[in-house]
Design a protein around this nucleic acid. Structure first.
Lengths: 208, 208
DNA sequence: AATTAAAAGTTGCAATTGCAACAGAAAATT
DNA sequence: AATTTTCTGTTGCAATTGCAACTTTTAATT
């Protein structure tokens, strides 16, 4: 339904040039953008992975969001008025599309197919983002680690139409995504295995 | 910035009629909509308050979201594939605007001003929703009750340009919004008062 | 290929948090 | 105005969870 457009076509069409968008490639560790200035910049990941990070007043690193292909982000989605400096950092080699939110409704000087597609698909990307955010809230509001894990496994299981599925990121990142202590999560995973509720081989889970 | 349009004008203009939208009034306790069927229905609260609710397998009532004036909701934002039945219930007398997401980009037969305004302001409403969801995630990811409370107070304080502000909902609802036990939250509020970090008179908080 | 860094896995212990079960205050309903 | 319901506030206790501090395994880098 919502994800019925192919971002790879985007990339190919972009080669024809668009006067409203930019495309950049980042290597691991590079800063893609910051959320400090208000400039209504929108970013879409074309390939690779990136994290939205913050260093809190204790100097601890917090991973606020993980971004992968098709994910959309930018400071206009995140105007929580805090004095924390947020920034997005490439986790791997990452290609990103940049544009200014208000610009995209305007016509592109070259009236390229790419620009039209982006303009028409932007609402879908944004809806997908909302669904993702609601999914995360759904999991975060669960009261116990067990419920969070099983809730997440249930979603992955449904999405893959199978009781067996791969975790899309590392266990360390999973703990961060669910906002729980990693060691406590490992402990609960062990209990779930003991109780025969899940099977786990590497990052392959079977939810029985 | 984002909230620079007046929804009250919406309501007035609606009187002229729009062939794409419906407006309904609900009394306390009435079901506004359900998230069971996939129909791309969008709802906007014109006045009043409502909650997105679910009864879990134990029969416990969960308040997933609180909606107030200007809030936008609908099952298209919430396609988490679970077998739980979600529904929105009016908490007070509530006026709601209904339309089908895809319809709103089409022209209205009466080409009313209302329809145009809604169409042009929909992206802003949606951006505001994303900001709200990110705000909630920001708070939910905090590890302790104290951090959650102070994070929330900090946001309210910044929004009201004052160290003193009113809680927008009851303490019972606040505990639910932050997904913490109410009694544990009350305990932490007492500690915050003892430590001289906040002052509290009724639902008026001063964050020192 | 060797070294370094990151991730996975474990465990003891302390502390926070949730739960249950109250009483009193406030609000809503009849 | 009286009654019912909801909300606020408090406390003991048990259980979950976070923290610290490791080792082992896997992945990445030089």
């Amino acid at each position: 339904m919502i994800n019925d457009f192919n971002i790879d076509d985007f990339i190919n069409n972009f080669e024809k040039g668009c006067t409203r968008c930019q495309r950049k490639t980042f290597t691991k560790g590079e800063i893609i953008t910051t959320y400090i200035a208000k400039r209504n910049q929108v970013c879409i990941i074309l390939s690779g992975t990136a994290d939205l990070l913050r260093y809190d007043f204790n100097g601890n690193k917090n991973i606020i969001e993980h971004f992968t292909k098709n994910d959309i982000f930018g400071e206009l989605f995140y105007t929580i008025s805090t004095n924390n400096e947020l920034f997005v950092q490439a986790k791997t080699k990452t290609e990103v599309l940049f544009f200014i939110y208000d610009d995209i409704q305007k016509k592109c000087k070259k009236t390229c197919k790419f620009h039209e597609e982006l303009s028409s698909n932007l609402p879908k990307l944004i809806l997908t983002k909302i669904v993702d955010l609601n999914t995360r809230i759904e999991l975060l509001t669960k009261r116990t680690i067990r419920e969070k894990l099983l809730g997440y496994f249930s979603i992955l299981s449904t999405r893959s139409f199978s009781k067996t599925f791969l975790l899309p990121f590392s266990l360390t990142d999973l703990a961060d995504y669910l906002s729980i202590d990693r060691s406590a999560m490992m402990r609960e995973l062990s209990t779930l295995k003991e109780d025969g509720i899940i099977k786990k081989v590497g990052n392959k889970i079977t939810y029985l």
